[in-house]
Nucleic acid binder design. Structure first.
Lengths: 194, 194
DNA sequence: TACGATCTTTGACAGGATGTAAGATATTCA
DNA sequence: TGAATATCTTACATCCTGTCAAAGATCGTA
């Protein structure tokens, strides 16, 4: 009764992991690559891919989960509970951006998947929650506005961070973009004037 | 030398328009539909589609252009130059949201297309420009903050409007979402405190 | 270590979509 | 009406997704 809920699957686990790794690489380099290409990169047959993921879309979702986990880990490492809420928020936002930036094409691809809104929300819930709790901390401490919902503010912060990332890709200097983002966030989050 | 740069194409124009119309309908209902389905809906053969659009992707871009035009028209009808800048901005933003909402699935599909950042920016330029000039008007009149660039503020407003649309789809009451959006925009755009 | 269960491989197939091509036919404009 | 242009029909090549079945390899365990 030692820890092995995964009965009988030493090689199966290996394959699954290899496929996921390969999918990360291959599909990020070419989002239109077929499962055959992924399989080859994983050192496995196409049919083995199907043995683990019934459909292309399911594989994509599994990859999405993986990126989400990376993101969560990066966020947690950025110490959401330390220091001023505003600083923490920016720090965590920045950390969360890294994995998505690392897998740009793949992120686009996954974002384009047909999705029921509920499942989508549930998928992003852990990320949204972490941000929302930073916002809540700021609201409790008086740093942030309490008239707007924490989840709204958290989501808005994410959007602005995305915009900043894209603006930067568009060629503006990182410093200028960083400053625009920071000022925008501070204005948006600022508590009501007395 | 009368206006007919489109030499020799009375029926060709008809077909092209029919195909575009059909693509709007069909692909919005089912983004995975094949070109055969589009052709049939247009009352045309698949090969005729290829005669007008060398590839599926090109057809999609043509559809995107069409939606962009719809959006521009809707924005212009919302009188960007009338009244207070903040009201105008919200009004125009709201008008711009309608076409995208009308073709939800299609918008997703197009958004997922592989795209060179430059081409993408150029494509959205007319929309961004209109919004930016409303922002500039507000900046000149002292309604808006001048420390942030007008194009940044315009883009930020678009993101927040998107967020509002999604939040509403997620089940929150339109009134609450509208209010959150309005308050957020006003805070973000507000001029620096003396 | 040998067995039985689980995974993987091989090979093959069906269905469907994207593109391409050529010749015949119809439409348009002049 | 005649010449140019667009469309239709038919056909083909290719790629990708999914599915199936049987043989082979690997794993955990008795």
């Amino acid at each position: 009764m030692t820890a092995s809920a995964d009965n009988r699957r030493a090689d199966a686990r290996r394959s699954r992991a290899a496929i996921l790794d390969a999918a990360l690489d291959v599909l990020d380099a070419d989002p239109d690559a077929g499962l055959g290409t992924v399989a080859k990169a994983a050192g496995v047959t196409r049919q083995t891919v199907y043995a683990h993921f019934a459909t292309r879309e399911r594989l994509l979702w599994a990859v999405a989960d993986r990126i989400t986990e990376e993101t969560l880990a990066a966020m947690d490492e950025a110490e959401p509970d330390a220091g001023a809420a505003a600083d923490a928020l920016i720090r965590v936002l920045d950390a969360a951006a890294a994995p998505a930036r690392r897998h740009r094409a793949l992120t686009r691809l996954i974002g384009a998947l047909p999705v029921e809104p509920d499942a989508d929300r549930e998928r992003h819930a852990p990320i949204a929650d972490r941000l929302a709790s930073v916002v809540e901390r700021g609201q409790r401490s008086g740093e942030f506005d309490t008239r707007l919902r924490a989840d709204w503010l958290a989501a808005a912060a994410v959007r602005l961070a995305h915009l900043a990332a894209e603006t930067q890709e568009a060629g503006q200097t990182p410093a200028a973009v960083q400053q625009a983002l920071r000022m925008s966030l501070l204005k948006l989050l600022a508590p009501a004037a007395p």
